[in-house]
Design a binder for these strands. Structure first.
Lengths: 354, 354
DNA sequence: TTTTAAAATGTGTACGCACACATTTACTTT
DNA sequence: AAAGTAAATGTGTGCGTACACATTTTAAAA
């Protein structure tokens, strides 16, 4: 009735060799005669052997250490969410003897990034999850990882030259297009659309440019309304910040604001609320507490969810799959571009899994 | 450095008893003296014992059989997707000795539902995943399952009285509200909105009513535009179906169509495309192949993703967690109400995981 | 006290695999 | 032909848990 799973022992019996030989064949450990190899391979072709991952893991009995490198969660709620994903992964894998250690660097400090990465490298973990926000500093780091054969997974920021085990994140260009689509929806009067760069640090620039490119491209291709799309660089620490913003909002032809960072979204929303121009469309990023409040209040119209928490926890899972279960991992895992509105936001918050 | 995980053996040593006794305490098997119980409990309070799930599962070495009861995939692409989720789960869990068997019933036949459920019950599986589309017929079935202590998980359709291990699905009322929001977005001229019931069978009615209620509620609460919301019941098998539909589309005041089933969405889209009224908003459900085509072509404006595939596969996972890993499962797992547009649709299709 | 039964506790094996190590085989070299 | 060496193959143990079963302890009955 219930057909038993095939074990190594069964293969050995069928092939007329010992389990040791089968093991060597399965793992290409060498030290197998051509004849034995042939016999085992023949059996393997006949039957569908699926190794028992539980037994495999239990048998090898290794304690893996995984290092996660990301910006300090205290500096930015976006990274705080990512850090929650790491915590979640820690709990999930602790009982399998997998240690996940967090290494933080200063979001604004290239040097700190570099130092942290080197520190991790010296600790020689079995796998690394890293958010390589500083492009130029990251390249030599990857070189190090590769030299010492430490598998690493990128998340949030893609650097194709890095040749990582896998990249987890979103298609930023397409993300910009989604932002544009949400901005364009139902707009019928021509006017100005502002793309805001709020409190952006150098390392965001690649991110931002990609999104912005997508945003503009969409309007070139799709929109029936002729919009002026203008860029604004603003720094909340600048004393004139609010005045600048107010001038922008006073423009009666302003139709919408697109902010491509999660933190920037919250800042923009606070000013828009303060000066009460709720008629203009505001499209931003991520389910930060603050953003949720503004979304519910109708200040923010749409959020695009980047899901840093799940990006982080899935990154660890990929490393575990690679190290422990010897499973293949997808080379890129692009997250869906989730559109969050007033009406569906609660459904996203309810479940921790999705 | 790497602190080793605590094993049963360690607890036994610390408590001064044997592993057998610890095992009996851990699993409340009885046959333990009050003193021994006390000693073990004392140790357990001190340390944080996390059983090794791998070893537990390997050790118990049980072959579980799980039955999945759902409508025939050939009758409806929605259920075809759900069935894909089952197939995926079959592959995922096969190597752990878990057998997932599919039991299909006729989507239109209450009797078939009942018979299939009874057949499953006679087979006495260790767990059951069921889409209880027929409310009245389902109640006595659940009674049977409970009597024989077979844990069961509901998906797609919720029946709170069933007291299942867990329910997986969406909040239909809120789903209707999301549909309404998408319908309302950027509409500025008053007119008619049609709620279409296409090819609906009796068992969809609860589903539909919930969504429709949410849909209407939203407009009552939120919309600034005064819409007439009208219901239409149509059957594609009816010879006059297309004429009826055409009459509807000829109404120049028609602003939008809301179709609450996945199959109905495809049918509606085909007619809308044929008669070329692409100016009206079309909001429907699910990423069926056909719907995707119409979405990309701009006939469908928004799809709400119910993700039947993931609902099904997660349902099996919950049962496995319960049976095999003795892990707790959430009593309800409400899926996010995913909004799919032309611009983000590809990002949803790319990854199989999400 | 001895017998008997029940309760409590301990021991051993299996789960399927990995891996170290022992043993056997095949082939050179002297 | 004997010895030596490397390659090939087999055996055994451990991973942490579950569970059956053997053994010991305790308490009651004869």
């Amino acid at each position: 009735m219930v057909e038993k799973n095939i074990r190594i022992k069964d293969i050995a019996r069928l092939a007329g060799v010992s389990v040791g030989t089968v093991d060597r064949v399965l793992h290409n450990r060498g030290r197998v005669s051509p004849e034995a190899l042939q016999k085992v391979t023949a059996v393997m072709e006949q039957i569908d052997y699926k190794p028992n991952l539980l037994a495999r893991t239990l048998g090898s009995n290794k304690n893996y250490r995984i290092a996660a490198i990301l910006p300090d969660p205290n500096q930015d709620p976006y990274w705080a969410q990512a850090s929650l994903g790491i915590t979640q992964a820690q709990l999930e894998w602790a009982q399998y003897g997998i240690q996940v250690e967090l290494f933080l660097f200063d979001l604004l400090d290239r040097d700190s990034f570099q130092k942290t990465a080197h520190r991790v490298h010296l600790a020689r973990p079995d796998g690394i999850l890293i958010a390589p926000t500083f492009y130029h500093e990251a390249l030599p780091i990857f070189e190090l990882f590769r030299e010492t054969d430490i598998p690493f997974v990128l998340f949030n920021t893609n650097i194709p030259e890095a040749q990582p085990l896998s990249f987890i994140g979103q298609n930023l260009h397409q993300s910009g297009r989604v932002g544009a689509e949400l901005m364009n929806l139902g707009q019928h009067e021509k006017g100005t659309l502002a793309v805001l760069h709020i409190d952006e640090d150098i390392q965001d620039s690649v991110h931002l440019l990609e999104k912005e490119r997508g945003f503009r491209e969409y309007f070139k291709e799709k929109s029936k309304v002729a919009f002026d799309i203008v860029d604004f660089n603003m720094n909340p620490k600048d004393p004139s910040f609010e005045d600048q913003f107010k001038t922008l909002l006073d423009d009666k032809s302003l139709r919408g604001l697109f902010v491509s960072t999660s933190k920037g979204t919250a800042v923009a929303a606070s000013i828009v609320e303060k000066y009460g121009r709720q008629d203009i469309r505001l499209v931003g990023y991520d389910l930060l507490e603050e953003n949720l409040r503004y979304l519910r209040a109708g200040v923010i119209d749409f959020l695009i969810n980047q899901n840093p928490k799940r990006q982080a926890s899935l990154g660890i899972s990929h490393l575990v799959n690679h190290l422990m279960f010897k499973k293949g991992t997808p080379s890129t895992d692009l997250f869906p571009l989730e559109v969050i509105t007033q009406q569906n936001v609660e459904s996203y918050l309810g479940s921790g899994i999705h």
